[in-house]
């Protein structure tokens, strides 16, 4: 027998033996896993985004089957998926409204001041560590796209103005962008919300005016003009209450910086919200 043949036969035989042992072991030590866990797991998106608070989709599937999590526990799945899971398990689903992310800053390069030129790692979290970021506004978007990278559903992309944009068709409301942003610029809003103040600054009006042309100066005109009393001021930042706002648009006209605006959804989401 040639040395080559010896090598092939020996290693081949050992490989066969190993696979035989494993095959037998898999049969002997077979563990019963509830088949419904697999079925529910198949229905879930399988992105393992962790938005539900469990370690992954399989963990959530097990929790749903065991009754520890609701059928609509997955924030990324559409209501149809939750309904399918509920039908599969014979349980009812408590309706919760779909949420989407919105970028609460409009201060692009043309409208917001910069303190210095940042030439470091292209990551907002790194930029934030350098003297608190290059943006003059300590609340504004740093625009390096960390949220875009964090999004597992391709729902975010960098717009031409250097700020991230949300495709509400693809956004599942998992909240990964909210968590990763060092300044919490992306925030989740109910998909039916009509108006929002696209600014995160709690600075007083004078400071905002000096560094950004499109920030909320906390003047309170929107609050005064709102017939539904849907707007409150939270430390010089106006906040729209989605449960009260009816989208009349009176505040849009009054706002001196035009920061309070109608929430713009992409076409498919509009139909779903309606």
């Amino acid at each position: 027998m040639g040395p080559v043949l010896t090598a092939i036969v020996t290693v081949g035989a050992m490989g066969m033996l190993a696979s035989l042992i494993l095959g037998v072991a898999a049969k002997v030590f077979y563990v019963y896993v509830d088949p419904r866990i697999g079925q529910v797991g198949d229905l879930l998106p399988g992105a393992n985004c962790g938005g539900c608070g469990y370690a992954g989709c399989t963990d959530l599937a097990a929790a749903i089957v065991q009754g520890n999590a609701p059928a609509n526990g997955c924030k990324a799945a559409s209501p149809e998926v939750a309904a399918n899971i509920a039908t599969l398990l014979g349980i009812s689903v408590e309706a919760g409204e779909r949420q989407v992310a919105q970028i609460f800053c409009r201060g692009d390069a043309a409208h917001a001041e910069r303190k210095f030129i940042y030439k470091g790692i292209k990551d907002c979290r790194a930029a934030q560590l350098v003297s608190g970021g290059d943006k003059a506004c300590t609340y504004g978007c740093l625009g390096l796209g960390t949220c875009v990278e964090a999004c597992m559903f391709n729902a975010l992309h960098m717009g031409a103005n250097g700020l991230p944009e949300v495709n509400t068709d693809l956004c599942t409301g998992c909240g990964n962008c909210v968590k990763i942003c060092p300044r919490h610029i992306p925030r989740l809003i109910p998909i039916s919300q009509m108006a929002a103040t696209y600014c995160s600054s709690h600075d007083i009006g004078k400071v905002v005016k000096e560094i950004c042309e499109v920030g909320c100066i906390g003047c309170g005109l929107c609050k005064k003009v709102c017939p539904e009393k849907a707007i409150e001021l939270d430390k010089f930042l106006s906040v729209v209450d989605p449960t009260k706002c009816n989208g009349c648009g009176k505040c849009f006209e009054k706002c001196p910086t035009g920061v309070i605006q109608a929430v713009v959804l992409t076409s498919k989401s509009l139909k779903m919200a309606a």
């Binding site: 010896t6 090598a7 020996t10 050992m14 190993a18 042992i21 494993l22 072991a25 898999a26 563990v31």
Partner: peptide, 29 residues
């Protein structure tokens, strides 16, 4: 058989099989 030069390959095979075996066993036990 005089094929000591296959040590690396064979040892990795043995280790991989063992780990797999332990995993199957542990899932049960």
């Amino acid at each position: 058989l005089g094929i000591e030069y296959l040590q690396t390959l064979v040892f990795i095979l043995v280790i991989a099989t063992l780990v797999q075996f332990v995993e199957i066993l542990m899932q049960k036990v």
